[in-house]
Design a protein around this nucleic acid. Structure first.
Length: 428
RNA sequence: GGAAGUAUGUCCGAGUGGCCUAAGGAGCACGCUUGGAAAGCGUGUAGGGUGCAAGCCCUCGCAGGUUCGAAUCCUGUUACUUCCGCCA
């Protein structure tokens, strides 16, 4: 939800943001009109209600014989109040509906335009080069007995997989490494529910443009979360947080579910795009004044991880038209995937400013002593997809994979993942 | 799955139709008192909306309803507690 005060006082800035996103500007004027209507209806209702309250006291105080006449009068008043209340509620709902169509105010400096208009902020590390024909992550995964797509499909269908042996261990190691680092940076670990109620899913904005990507259980009317961001944002819904000692930071560990509707035929090979994966997500509740600095901090934690894993990557400033409705700015980090000859998204970190918190009613006590919506930020610290870049980047001619040093402690000191021999693979 | 009970402010807790504009207590803050503290005394102590402001309006789990008037009566719903059943 956008800030109604900004809408009222500076509608031009809202229009500018809508334009950068390629969204409608008309909706801003519609929202302004609805807001005026809403406030007029509310004032009318409140005036009548005050009258009614006053009258009620007279009825109470009146002598018995005068009561019937007064009550008859009060009945008239009550009918008027009821009608005015209905009008006020209607006008309020109408405003909410229109205002919900306005997406978060884009931060100055975010590139305008669509998906292809991103700006590369930096490239880090060296592209890996091989003096042999590199194998893709699935071929490696099969050699190592780490990834089993066939049986995933047998059990659950396309885009499902089993991680087994070193594959399973590698994912757990990666997640643990991320968790350790998150804790060092002051994040509280949180294992979150992956089924949430409609109002939480809606409050985090995922039932808007992403609605078709979300799994829904109609029987129970619960939604499967595509990221722990949903539960983490809902965690403090309707609460007033104490940010006196700085931002509140969580590292949420959860399995994520995405239906990937509309991506048929895209990335069908391997575990790059799947219906289910694990992710360690950073989530921060911050004073809005600190949000941009916090955003940079989240990116730096992600970069530390990727550097420790020896991956080559670039950081991009995602264009306004490619932002989710809640995000005011988003930095993606894309790692180099050798066999694809391109960068693929490994992390995404969004500054949602106060947009998400306003909808979920998460506030803090500001310096003036008043409550105000907090800023929320979220970003990936590790996820299953990273295995793709790790396997491909560190592969050797014989199909083995060198374990990045930083990951070894989490694998009992294992230095190299060795291919299984043919017999073992057959048995597997 | 069945049955019963509970839900009030930061916390405990009173409150069965209008003196609820929510008692009382605890905690917290400030002040008085004190050499300093404790005790004592006094004052204050939720959120939201609207308005330039004074003010007014809303909120007793949540949503409806009855009524001139609802924390209180009715319906639905959610969470928690206890018991029974089932499963592990």
């Amino acid at each position: 939800m956008i800030d109604p005060v900004i809408l009222r006082n500076d509608p031009e800035s809202v229009k500018r943001s809508q334009r950068a996103r390629g969204n409608s500007e008309v909706v801003v004027d519609e929202a302004l009109a609805a807001d005026a209507l809403r406030r007029a209806a509310l004032t009318e209702f409140e005036t009548l209600r005050a009258e009614q309250n006053e009258f009620g006291k007279q009825v109470k105080a009146a002598p018995k014989e005068e009561k019937p006449a007064l009550i008859a009068q009060a009945q008239q008043l009550a009918a008027g109040v009821k009608a005015a209340e209905a009008r006020a509620k209607e006008a309020d709902a109408a405003f909410d509906t229109i205002a919900a169509r306005i997406e978060n105010l884009v931060i100055d400096g975010v590139p305008s335009g669509g998906e292809e208009n991103f700006v590369t902020l930096r490239e880090v590390g060296e592209r890996s080069s091989f003096d042999f024909e590199p194998r893709d992550h699935l071929e490696l995964g099969e050699l190592l007995g780490a990834i089993d797509m066939e049986r995933g499909a047998k059990v659950s269908g396309a885009r499902f997989y089993f991680l087994r042996g070193v594959g399973a261990r590698l994912e757990i190691a990666l997640m643990n490494m991320a968790l350790d680092r998150a804790m060092q940076h002051g994040f509280t670990p949180l294992i979150t529910p992956t089924l949430v109620k409609p109002e939480i899913m809606n409050g985090t904005g995922f039932l808007g443009e992403h609605a078709s990507e979300v799994y829904h259980l109609p029987e129970q009317d619960l939604y499967l979360t595509g990221t722990s961001e949903v539960a983490l944002a809902g965690y403090h819904a309707s609460e007033i947080l104490d940010l006196e000692d700085g931002a509140v930071r969580y590292a949420g560990w959860s399995t994520c579910y995405r239906s990937e509707a509309g991506s048929h035929g895209k990335d069908t090979r391997g575990i790059l795009r799947v219906h289910q994966f694990n992710k360690l997500e950073m989530f921060v509740y911050a004073d809005p004044a600190d949000a941009e600095a916090e955003h940079d901090r989240l990116v730096s934690y992600q970069e530390e991880m990727l550097q420790a894993l020896g991956l080559h990557y670039r950081v991009i400033d995602v264009a306004a038209g490619d932002l989710g409705s809640s995000a005011a700015r988003k930095f993606d980090i894309e790692a180099w995937v050798p066999t694809q000859g391109t960068y693929r998204e490994l992390t995404s970190t969004s500054n949602c400013t106060t947009y998400q918190a306003r909808r979920l009613s998460t506030r803090f006590r500001s310096e003036s002593g008043k409550t105000a919506p907090v800023a929320t930020l979220n970003g990936t610290l590790a996820t299953t997809r990273w295995l793709v870049a790790i396997l491909e980047t560190h592969q050797q001619a014989d199909g083995s994979v060198v374990v990045p040093e930083a990951l070894r402690p989490y694998l009992g000191g294992l230095e190299v993942l060795a291919p299984l021999d043919t017999d073992a693979r057959k048995k597997g």
